[in-house]
Computed example of a mutant assay.
Amino acid sequence: MTETQSLLGKLADVVSLGRTDRVTARLKLEAFFSEAERGPFAPCTIAHYLADLQDSTEDELEWDLRALAAADVVTDEETVEAGFKAEALMPSLHVNLADDYRRLARFDDAERHLTAARLTAGVLGDDAYGDLIRDVLTRVGEAIAARDTSRMETNPSTQAQG
């Protein structure tokens, strides 16, 4: 098993745990994040999942911003073992940020990230994961247009992965 496959397996286990025990899952992911000395793919992925386990939108935003910053330097060499190109991270990362900003009533920032998510969505496959992200894009876009700040289940990392 490669390092990437091992990381993804650990993350899948912790994400499953997070559905029933958010605090323990958050602590485990924070430990993974502090130990992540590999290339930027590990911190990006861990921060992406950590965002979903936060109790406040402000904390979720902080972790989503960390994930995006790390994603900017992730290479295809790092993601090939996970079965996708590095650019495929961007639609999900940007739509999560759009949703964070929407819930904080920062609609200009939300629109900016929604636009970035839409512009990068062309890299998504014609599969269940691609459909999921496109659906989230639609729902977040509708909520932004309605100036709705309520929490809704939009985050792909808390749902079934394709």
Rank of each mutant, 00 (worst) to 15 (best):
D76G: 04
A36M: 08
F32Q: 08
L17K: 14
L124E: 02
D72H: 07
L124D: 03
R147K: 12
H94S: 09
E62N: 08
G122S: 01
G18E: 05
R147V: 02
V23T: 10
R102W: 05
L97S: 04
T2G: 07
R102S: 11
T115L: 09
A105W: 13
E60P: 04
R19F: 07
N96E: 10
P156E: 08
Y129F: 06
I46P: 10
A25G: 15
N96R: 14
K10D: 08
T154M: 00
D52M: 10
G18M: 06
G162D: 03
A146W: 08
G18C: 03
D126W: 01
E35R: 03
T154K: 00
S157D: 09
K10E: 08
R66S: 02
I144W: 08
G39Y: 03
T45A: 04
A143V: 01
G83S: 11
L89F: 15
T154C: 11
G125A: 02
L137I: 02
R19Y: 00
R26K: 12
A146V: 02
Q5M: 07
A12I: 04
D99S: 08
D72F: 13
A31G: 13
N155S: 06
T154E: 08
G39D: 15
T57P: 00
D131F: 00
R118F: 00
D52W: 05
V95G: 09
Q54A: 05
A36G: 12
G141I: 05
T57I: 15
R151Q: 03
V95F: 05
D126E: 14
R26E: 14
A51G: 14
M1W: 12
R66M: 13
S6V: 11
S157H: 08
E3K: 00
I133V: 14
D13G: 07
T115Y: 13
D148C: 11
A69C: 10
G9D: 01
Q161L: 14
A143D: 13
A116S: 07
T120Y: 06
E81K: 09
D109K: 13
T154F: 10
F41C: 04
D131H: 06
H113E: 10
A117W: 00
T120E: 00
A42T: 08
D100N: 15
R22S: 15
D59M: 12
P156K: 02
D76S: 08
L104M: 09
P156Q: 06
A98F: 05
D21H: 10
D64N: 11
Q159T: 02
S150N: 09
A51F: 06
A36T: 11
E58R: 11
E35P: 00
E3Y: 05
R147L: 12
I144S: 00
G39L: 07
Q54R: 07
G122L: 01
L93P: 10
R106G: 09
F107L: 07
R103M: 14
K10C: 05
A71H: 07
T115W: 02
D127F: 05
A47C: 04
H94Q: 12
K85V: 10
T24V: 07
L119H: 04
T138P: 02
A121E: 01
V15F: 01
K10A: 01
L50S: 01
L114H: 14
D148W: 03
